[in-house]
Design a binder for these strands. Structure first.
Lengths: 146, 146
DNA sequence: CAGGATCCGTTTCGATACTG
DNA sequence: CAGTATCGAAACGGATCCTG
């Protein structure tokens, strides 16, 4: 569908750093989903759904699908309950941690914001903060048998 | 506009860091506009327009208006040619430099990307890179009489 | 000519209802 | 619980027109 003018932007704008990534991250939900998986440890559709009550079921499903397609998250069966699906960050997704951190710090500096503890944690020792969440991620990777 | 259901998300999702900011940055163009103003020194409607040939005039105008409204950029008359308008980053906008930098580095690590020189510059000494672009910005501020 | 505003067809989003 | 189907609303993109 949609062959009105051939290329709808993505192809035209490639070659410059960021253009392709914005294609994925440049929407209202993706960054929030990644943030909550990274910083709050969310893993299931339900957790994400309840968090932002505003999101529609189909939108959440769609964003999760696209994030998977893009290699930022992966869906894997829950080790305890094989019927359940857990969404986990891939390494590529975890590598977004510095971006998210800088964004939270920016937001904290320029907007009213909640969760000052988290902000302080980031601001105090950014490198340590990043190392810590990465280490936690490594452990979950090991736990899930990867 | 858009008063279909009273509160369209922003109010419901406040309190958590990032929610409000994503409202502004979470779209396909805003981050690219900021990047080009910050990293490539773009200042005019025309420069931006020609850069991403894909963007429609009304969309660019709309994004510029919203970025101004949000305090990320400002419009001021060109000192040489009073008919022209220059768009410049505010301090709040410049403070996005670390975010942009991390994003570019992420994109460079995980996507094919152009402009490797820029990436190398960032990766080599991130702090110096950030200090440099901020210093350049300070100079333009001084030059425009602010 | 730069910097938009307006109109219009197309694409995407989002709320609700519904389903395995 | 974890989504899919549907359908109206909003955003987008392109072309054109307006204004200083």
């Amino acid at each position: 569908m949609s062959k009105t003018s051939g290329k709808s932007g993505s192809e035209r704008r490639s070659g410059c750093p960021l253009n392709a990534s914005v294609e994925m991250l440049g929407d209202r939900w993706s960054l929030l989903i990644i943030r909550d998986m990274m910083l709050r440890g969310f893993r299931s559709y339900k957790e994400l759904m309840e968090c932002y009550e505003g999101i529609a079921t189909n939108i959440l499903a769609d964003r999760l699908r696209k994030l998977i397609e893009y290699g930022i998250i992966a869906a894997e069966p829950d080790p305890q309950d094989r019927r359940k699906v857990n969404y986990v960050l891939t390494r590529k997704g975890m590598d977004l941690a510095p971006v998210l951190t800088e964004m939270v710090l920016w937001a904290a500096a320029h907007e009213e914001t909640g969760n000052q503890q988290l902000v302080e944690l980031m601001r105090g020792d950014k490198a340590k903060f990043l190392a810590d969440i990465r280490a936690r991620w490594e452990r979950t990777q090991a736990a899930s048998g990867k």
